[in-house]
Design a protein around this nucleic acid. Structure first.
Lengths: 228, 228
DNA sequence: ACCTGAACACCGTTCAAGT
DNA sequence: ACCTGAACACCGTTCAAGT
């Protein structure tokens, strides 16, 4: 599932081309930087990802990184695109549209729930600079088209689903007691709903809300497919 | 619509009470800090909100702030809760459920589209510490109940809608050309969908995807109300 | 109780100097 | 072309000292 080797340099970075006959002096490149950043994040979280820590892990001086990326934002964008290769789009080739969308959405949420600091970046990053993101969108758009979606509605439907997925990724990190009003008398109605929820479904998890919302949006999209 | 004066201190901050007969020495308090932070954000954006800038605007030393908040995170949580008072829940008292939900969701998205750096905080902040957030949830939960929602499903339905709203708030800040593949031959299917979209609906705005997703999720929720 | 001023331990980024 | 080392302009936060 990971794209192991080939990590094409986004267009906006200067390629690390090597002239034949000249010894390769470069010890750094975009792909190892991305990999090291991801390992650092997995080990120490996003607060552990600093340019200094990244450089140290790669055994170079921090300033050396700036020969390959323009900023820390660039590093984050590289990691974001790389993670997109872990989002499973295979269901679009195998299952019917509603099941395929649900499988894709779950996989997408699960990947980025561990990387919420990237969500503000994804949502705003032009896809032209992100090869893996482009690849993923292509598969999804194709799945929609084969399921009979009108060409002009595909993008908006995908964006709507993504919005729900991004928001749900944050929710995964909510503490279990997020809805404990502390017995606040100011909100008896909410307290009642929270308690009824707990009595019926147990302690708070993001999964029930995600399933409910995903089912609703998939059903709703299907019902209004094409009547625009 | 703004709650002008009364900004109750969250339980976790030490109150700035004054003994009678003693001159008030305190020149700072939580409410002015919140207000100053919001003004700073409106003027210079979130990168302009530093503890130093905040202190300067209040004519105190940066270290003075720490007598009233424990961290910058605290300041952000105060701003977040304050903004919740701008989210319009009045439609729940006036309109039918689907219209009320749509009006509330739009208002919610519009407020936080200008404050996306707060979304990671909202999504994780226990509501007990946030009086305005609590008030807002109370109104929404009540609206759901009066519309006949089963008590145990109210919280999950609201969370699902919020997830969509948060994700959509990011999308508002997407650049117009976010889907320009740069004529990438790698993604002909996506390019087709993007072009068909543009031909039919004009340049990219977040509003169409938001309307589509919101209608879908409202319809979908309504269709499956209670069958759990 | 609440403020100031100095200090600390970081950040990301730049740039002259080397090879 | 790509690296090092030093430096810059910030950050958020702490803490002794004052009132």
């Amino acid at each position: 599932m990971p794209d192991q080797e080939a990590m094409p340099d986004p267009a906006h970075q200067q390629p690390a081309k090597r002239r034949a006959g000249r010894p390769a002096k470069a010890i750094l490149a975009v792909a190892p930087i991305t990999q090291a950043a991801l390992e650092l994040i997995r080990r120490d979280g996003y607060k552990g990802l600093t340019m200094a820590a990244l450089a140290k892990r790669l055994n170079v001086a921090p300033s050396a990184l700036y020969n390959h990326v323009r900023s820390k934002q660039d590093v984050l964008a590289l990691v974001q695109d790389h993670l997109m290769s872990f989002v499973d789009v295979s269901a679009f080739a195998e299952a019917a549209w509603p099941e395929a969308v649900r499988a894709w959405a779950r996989s997408y949420r699960d990947v980025f729930a561990q990387h919420t600091p990237l969500i503000p970046i994804i949502a705003v990053q032009p896809i032209a600079d992100s090869p893996q993101t482009l690849r993923s969108y292509e598969a999804v758009a194709d799945g929609f088209r084969r399921a009979g979606w009108p060409e002009s509605e595909i993008v908006d439907a995908i964006v709507a689903l993504e919005s729900f997925i991004y928001g749900s990724a944050f929710d995964v990190n909510a503490p279990e007691d997020i809805f404990d009003g502390g017995g606040q008398p100011a909100a008896p109605g909410l307290t009642g709903a929270v308690q009824a929820r707990e009595a019926r479904h147990g302690r708070y998890t993001a999964d029930r809300a995600f399933a409910l919302g995903l089912d609703a949006i998939v059903d709703g999209l299907l019902a209004r497919r094409g009547d625009t």
